[in-house]
Computed example of a mutant assay.
Amino acid sequence: MTTQTRGAVAFEQVRKDFGAFTAIPDLTLRIEPGELVTLLGPSGCGKTTTLRMLAGLETPTAGRILIGGEDVTRLPANRRDVSMVFQSYALFPHMSVAQNVAYGLESGGMKGGAVRDAVETGLDLVGLGGMGARLPSELSGGQQQRVAVARALVLEPQVLLLDEPLSNLDARLRRRVRTEIRELQQRLGFTAVYVTHDQEEALAVSDRIVVMQNGRIAQQGPPRELYEQPASDFIADFIGESNVVPCTVEGLSEGAATVRVGGLVQQVPARHAVLGPARLSVRANAITVQTGQGPFMGRIATSAYLGDHLEYEIETAIGPLFAVDAEGDAPLSPGTPVTLSFRPRGLALIA
Rank of each mutant, 00 (worst) to 15 (best):
M131L: 15
M131D: 01
G132K: 02
P136F: 03
S137E: 07
E138N: 07
E138G: 03
E138Q: 15
L139E: 01
L139F: 00
S140Y: 05
G141Q: 02
G142T: 06
Q144I: 00
Q144P: 00
Q145P: 06
V147E: 00
V147M: 03
A148N: 04
V149N: 02
V149P: 02
V149S: 01
R151M: 06
R151G: 01
A152M: 07
L153M: 13
L153F: 12
L153H: 09
L155D: 05
L155Y: 02
E156N: 15
Q158N: 09
L161K: 02
D163W: 08
E164G: 09
E164H: 12
E164V: 04
P165W: 03
N168D: 05
N168F: 04
A171C: 07
L173M: 15
R175L: 12
R176H: 12
V177H: 00
V177A: 01
T179V: 11
T179M: 11
E180P: 04
E180K: 04
I181C: 04
I181D: 01
Q185N: 12
Q186D: 12
R187G: 02
L188W: 04
G189M: 11
F190W: 09
T191A: 06
A192E: 09
Y194K: 06
Y194V: 01
V195T: 07
V195G: 06
T196Y: 11
H197C: 07
H197A: 12
D198M: 10
E200Y: 05
E200D: 14
E200T: 14
E201H: 10
V205H: 06
S206V: 07
D207T: 06
D207V: 05
R208C: 01
R208Q: 14
I209S: 11
I209L: 05
V210S: 10
V210L: 09
V210N: 09
V211W: 02
V211H: 04
M212P: 06
N214G: 12
G215Q: 08
G215L: 09
R216M: 14
I217N: 14
A218P: 08
Q219C: 10
Q220N: 06
G221R: 11
G221M: 03
G221C: 07
G221V: 05
P222K: 14
P222D: 10
